[in-house]
Simulated assay, not measured.
Amino acid sequence: MNRRTLPVTAALAATAALFLTGCSSDSEPDDKIKGADQGKSSHSSSSKPSPSASAEVADFGLPDDIKVEIESNKTGDKAKDQILKEQAEGLMARQRLFVDLDPNSRYLTRYYADEARDFYVSEIKKAKSEGRTITGTYRYYDRKIEKSTDDLAIVSYCEDRSKAYAKDIKSGKTRKTEPTPEDFIRNTATLRKTQHDTWLVQSFRGKTSAQECR
């Protein structure tokens, strides 16, 4: 699969390839996700995570061999910080999706909609059929709200997958690869606000070998 593909649907496919290598219904406001209302985890983009620099994201119950570091990037604006918080939770949920490999996962319906949700349903089924899951470290940093209205937001962010790998479910063997410039990705996600005041990712694009993320 070409990891340099950029436009929407193809970009989603490229993102999935990287993930495993190196129209929707809104969730109800009381649709609790297991682990999402528990203690906060300390995620940071630095090699030594600092709580002050970490996004306030709940523990999503990921296995010990998966580490997610998310830079806070708070703006001081309550509405924008809520968008960034839920976008960060969506990133955590994405890792959980490839651990559970459940196309009906509540993590999926809570944080994703439309094109993004359809895409992950497809990729979850593919990963499950191939007996693959994920392991390693996923870093997210330089998160910025490029545009926001009352019900729509565009968030850009950097992603480092140089220490993220696919893992064989049956054998538990990690499929390690050497880091490459393609492991540094600049993503743009479009989120919409639901009638329950939650934010869902509708679609996203990714540019691999992003110099601004290295």
Results as ranks from 00 to 15, higher is better:
R175F: 08
I124L: 06
S41M: 13
L91E: 14
F119H: 15
R106F: 03
K34F: 01
D160W: 00
D150V: 07
V8W: 06
W199C: 03
Y165E: 05
E56G: 08
A36F: 08
K147F: 03
E115F: 07
C158T: 09
K170I: 00
S52Q: 11
P63R: 03
T137E: 12
P103D: 13
I169D: 08
S41Y: 00
T188M: 08
S47G: 00
N104L: 01
K40A: 10
S162T: 07
D118K: 15
A164H: 14
R205K: 14
A88C: 05
T198Y: 12
N104F: 00
H43S: 12
F60H: 11
C158P: 03
P179E: 09
S162N: 01
A79Q: 14
D197K: 13
S52Y: 06
T135C: 05
A36G: 10
A17C: 09
C213R: 08
A166K: 11
I124Y: 01
A153V: 10
A58H: 05
S209E: 15
M92Y: 11
A164Q: 09
A14P: 01
A55S: 15
R214A: 03
T149K: 05
E123R: 10
A17T: 12
D150W: 05
S46I: 02
T5D: 09
K147T: 07
L20T: 15
Y107M: 02
A55H: 07
Q95C: 12
H43L: 11
L6M: 09
R117A: 13
E130T: 04
K163Q: 14
I70W: 06
K163V: 01
S50Q: 11
S129P: 03
L108D: 06
L97E: 08
D114S: 14
P181M: 08
S156F: 04
S41F: 01
E159K: 12
A189H: 07
E69T: 04
Y165D: 09
Q87T: 13
D102I: 01
